[in-house]
Each structure stands twice: as structure tokens, then as C-alpha cells.
Design a protein around this nucleic acid. Sequence first.
DNA 1: CGAGTTGTGCGCATAAAGATAGAACAATAC
DNA 2: GTATTGTTCTATCTTTATGCGCACAACTCG
Lengths: 133, 133
Amino acid sequence: MLIRVDPSDPLPLHEQLARGIRASIIDGRLAGGERLPAARDLAASVGVNMHTVLHAYRRLRDEGLIELHRGRGAVVLVRLGGHGALAGAIHDLVDEAKARDIGEPALLALISEAYRWAPGAPPTGVRRPPTTR
Amino acid sequence: MLIRVDPSDPLPLHEQLARGIRASIIDGRLAGGERLPAARDLAASVGVNMHTVLHAYRRLRDEGLIELHRGRGAVVLVRLGGHGALAGAIHDLVDEAKARDIGEPALLALISEAYRWAPGAPPTGVRRPPTTR
DNA sequence: CGAGTTGTGCGCATAAAGATAGAACAATAC
DNA sequence: GTATTGTTCTATCTTTATGCGCACAACTCG
């Protein structure tokens, strides 16, 4: 868990934290079942407030990447065939977008648009398994 | 150009405008080369400030969807084989994500992450053709 | 050219978000 | 039981975002 944050970065601290952890989870540096450091600890080691870390944790929970429990801490979810299966498709799409010189904000906007049109599961908001709260 | 905005919507007005126009461009209701209404006009017809409309226009320009020039107005870019070709891939990805019960914020986060890793064109920021400024 | 059009820049007021702090609390693990 | 750890609540402060009004500069077109 080597994470650094840059207060001068326009990106919010909690988002920087979330990114770092998210990246570690996706590429496997953090295995499923593994436990993240306690919010207080990570906060102290990184030099931010505990609430800021918890903000990031909560975000990752809402994204379905980790589990969060009182007294138990934050644990990386296993998600068999979950994000892993999507990774390929995402990678291809990003390559395609870059080849066409489409910037990140544009791509995100297009996808966000597509998400709103397409029929399917969550019409709005985020899905939180009842066991998580 | 039938666009409505809802001030009670938590989404910023300029974002609501950008979405409406973006959607029209992507699905072809607004053809390449077509000109958008002058910011003042659209602002008046929708009931917001001119700057709010221009904010949306500027965003769409940064996304590479339109061109913006003083005295000339906002014109939809043609982008042959541009976004159109991506549409399929995006649609598939969104379907896949919804099937796996992955919410929009989570999907966007994953893609944003992938964008940062992958090698390719714009490392950061946005691409603006010199002719546009 | 000259008048009309249209986006741009500057400044300002208010709202929202970000970050921190402290305290008390409720599950959980040992 | 005790220590741990996320949760909830209140509060304060700073920064950023949002939206607006006015004057300006570049462009178009007759």
C-alpha cells in the first residue's frame, strides 16, 4: 500500500486515494480478500484526515471493489469474473479512443451518455448490497 | 434543437445543456457542419445566462464535438469515422457493465483508470485543433 | 468600410464541495 | 472485557464551481 497524495493536485485528496487503491486492486497488487489499512492508520501515514480516507473507502465500496465493516476494516472483494472480464473490453475501447484522438473527458462523456440511454440495471445512483451497510 | 433545463436538477445547468446537445450530435439529430444557435439566442430561449450556454459549448469543443469561433458561432464537427465507429464498442461495453451490475460511477472510474495507464495520444488535458482557437 | 453578430475576458456574488477537527457511538475481533 | 475500526454528528474553514452582468475583440456580410 504505497500511496502518496499531492495537495497541489487539483484532484480532490479522497479521489487521489481512491485512484491509487483502485489501481492496485485492478492490476492485482491487492488481492481479493486482502485487507486495507485502517482508515486512521492510512490517514496518519499519508498525512490526511481520517474522514478523507473513509471518503475514498466509501467510494470504492460504492463501486463494488471493497467491503466495509465496523471493527473489521476494509477488505478487497473477490468478484469472480467481475471486473476482470470487463478489463479486456475496456482496454480495447480505450485503445480505440486514443487512436482516434478522443480525450478522456470526451470518452467519459460518451460513455456516460450511452449509460443513460441503454436499458438495464441501475437507472440512477449506485448499487449497495444490503450486507454492506 | 429542443432543449430544456431543470434548475431543480442537482446537475449544473451547463452540464444539462451539454448533455442534450451531445446526445443530439451523437445520434445524428444534429448533422456535421450544422450550426448551433447563437449562445445568446439559446440562452434566451432556454431561460439561462449566455455564459452558461457558452460554458456548455466550450465543453463540447474540448470534447472535439463542435467548433467555436467568434462571429461565426458553434458548428458541429464532421469527424468522419470518428465517434460513430466507437459507438458500437461503447454500447457493448455499457451493456456488459450493466449486466454485471456495475454502476455508472464505477464504470467511469475503471475507464478513467485504464485511460491513464494505456500508452497513446493525449497524456493529459485535452486536444484542441489549432484552427479552433 | 461599417454595422451587426458572436464568442471572450474580467469581475463579482452566491452556492457547493473539499478537508479538517473533535467527540461519541456501535459492531467486530481477540 | 478490551481494543479495534468504521459510522454518525456537529462545526468550522478554505477552495472551487456556478451563474450572472458588462464591456470588449474578432469575425461576417452587405
